[in-house]
Each structure stands twice: as structure tokens, then as C-alpha cells.
Amino acid sequence: MANLDSALKDAMTIDGAIGVALVDYTSGMTLGVAGGTPEIDLTVAAAGNTDVVRAKMRTIEMLKLNDDIEDMLITLGGQYHIIRPLTGSNGKGLFLYLMLSKSRSNLALARHQLRAIEEQLEL
């Protein structure tokens, strides 16, 4: 089991990682961030992506799919963004947000590693 800081540090060891954040999607506030660049403010990314997560969850609810989001992939020209809601009982209402450089990362491996980090994360 890993605490928040070591989980974020682990996420930054994923190949191509630019930044990572743990976000509360009920408020849009971050519980922790790691990485990022001077141009990328992860708190802005967290607040914006909160709306993405909420919209997707609402859509699933409206479609009566009776299912949960495992993860979401957003592909940009030069980056991958992976959103992974926490599944543990103490992670309710939280999601991990990982930014990857498209050229330096292995998407399948990154997804796998992020899942492992999320499963190990204890708050």
C-alpha cells in the first residue's frame, strides 16, 4: 500500500509522464500534484477535467448503463491524458489525472502502471 505522495511519485516514473494530479471531482480541487511544467498549471487542468468526468458520469447515468468508468483516454496531438477514477471505498469522488508525452510513452504500459498505482493507493 502506498500513500498519496509516493503514489504520485510512482506515477511520475511512468515513461513519458509530464504531470499527475489526484483530484476531488465534487469540488474540482486537487489533493496532490506532481510534475507539471511552468506552462501547465495542474490545478487548472484538474478543475477543467472535473467537468469532463462529471459529464461522462452523467451521460452513463442517463443512458442507464449501470456501469462505472474504469478510465478515460484523451489523445492530443502531442500528449495523452489518462483519467482514472478511484475505486476504493476511501477514494470515492476522486480521480487520478495523468499527462503523458505521446512520443515518449507506451500507452498500454502506462495504463497498466496507472491501474497498479491506483489499486495500491491508500488515503
Binding site: S27, G28, M29, A47, T50, D51, R54
Partner: peptide, 8 residues
């Protein structure tokens, strides 16, 4: 409300 967005 997305209160983080409001604060930004």
C-alpha cells in the same frame, strides 16, 4: 458547482 473553477 465546480468550486475550484470558480476560484480560478
Amino acid at each position: 458547482i465546480n468550486v475550484a473553477r470558480l476560484h480560478l
